[in-house]
């Protein structure tokens, strides 16, 4: 029996590796978007059901592992805490707004947000857990770059890709999401972005500016689509940048990105 290399496992694997490598290298990311869009249109209702079921099961699991009522009380407190944090950030900004010419700041009144509610249907399952997929897309007026919030104005991410019926959100801990922000107490400016192994950081803060532990970080309103005053989180730690030209704040978000089920997309942040 003669040995035929072309029918061996190794040959098949090599061929697949070459073709797949070629596709990865040459193929632009958006080339397969029409196929993705079609697949998502067909399967997003099923994904929504599966995610919903998993969420309910995980809630049961959490409930079982907690001590009865403490669980629901805890949830209520977390929710209240989030609302209070957002409220505090908002009120802090309003008081400053009164001090420094209300007309100039023009904060977008929250009740005027045009929000689109959406359910999370899938999430990153490897890497950093830094993206989500929601069940609303082009059809609902979602566009790339729109901010995504939870509760009353806590920012969780930005719309990255939009398909007909679904969208992909880059969470704040994604290194590719960059948002202009300010420290609500000191007015120090910087950019919030994700960083590998750390989470969310506020970078590019000048050494001459003040950034302290516990300070609230909010959106500055400079970025496109982003209204001013959306809460991002609190400064957990402050470290100098490697070149010592800037400060970097490590931000802790009041939201647990891994247990989001519903989010809201702000469709007209620039109004």
């Amino acid at each position: 029996m003669s040995f035929n290399f072309f029918s061996t496992k190794l040959f098949k694997v090599i061929v697949v590796l070459i073709i797949a490598g070629f596709v990865i290298f040459l193929n632009p990311y958006n080339f397969f978007n029409p196929i993705r869009s079609a697949v998502f249109t067909v399967f997003s209702p099923l994904q929504k059901v599966v995610y919903g079921l998993a969420f309910e099961f995980s809630e049961i699991k959490k409930f079982m592992s907690s001590i009865g009522q403490l669980k629901s009380e805890n949830e209520k407190l977390i929710k209240e805490n989030r609302e209070l944090l957002a409220e505090k950030a908002y009120l802090g900004e309003i008081s400053k707004e009164n001090e420094v010419l209300r007309e100039e700041l023009k904060l977008l009144p929250r009740e005027k947000f045009n929000l689109e509610g959406a359910s999370v249907i899938s999430r990153d399952f490897h890497g950093q857990g830094d993206w989500l997929e929601i069940d609303k897309g082009e059809k609902s007026g979602i566009k790339k770059g729109m901010p995504v919030i939870v509760d009353k104005g806590i920012l969780v991410g930005i719309i990255e890709d939009v398909y007909r019926n679904t969208s992909k959100i880059f969470l704040l801990n994604n290194p590719q999401s960059v948002i202009n922000t300010i420290d609500s107490k000191t007015n120090s400016k910087g950019i919030v972005k994700g960083e590998y192994g750390i989470g969310v950081v506020m970078d590019m803060v000048l050494q001459s500016e003040s950034l302290d532990k516990g300070d609230e970080i909010i959106t500055s309103g400079i970025s496109n689509n982003f209204p001013k005053g959306l809460l991002i989180g609190n400064v957990e730690d402050v470290v100098p940048s490697p070149d010592r030209l800037f400060k970097k704040g490590i931000i802790s978000s009041p939201v647990d990105f891994s247990s989001l089920r519903f989010v809201f997309v702000i469709k007209d942040g620039n109004q």
Partner: peptide, 17 residues
């Protein structure tokens, strides 16, 4: 695949899925 992406991530932390 749907199970992997929409079910497991809610039961395990991201690095353990």
């Amino acid at each position: 695949v749907i199970f992997q992406m929409s079910f497991f991530p809610l039961f395990f932390s991201i690095e353990n899925i």
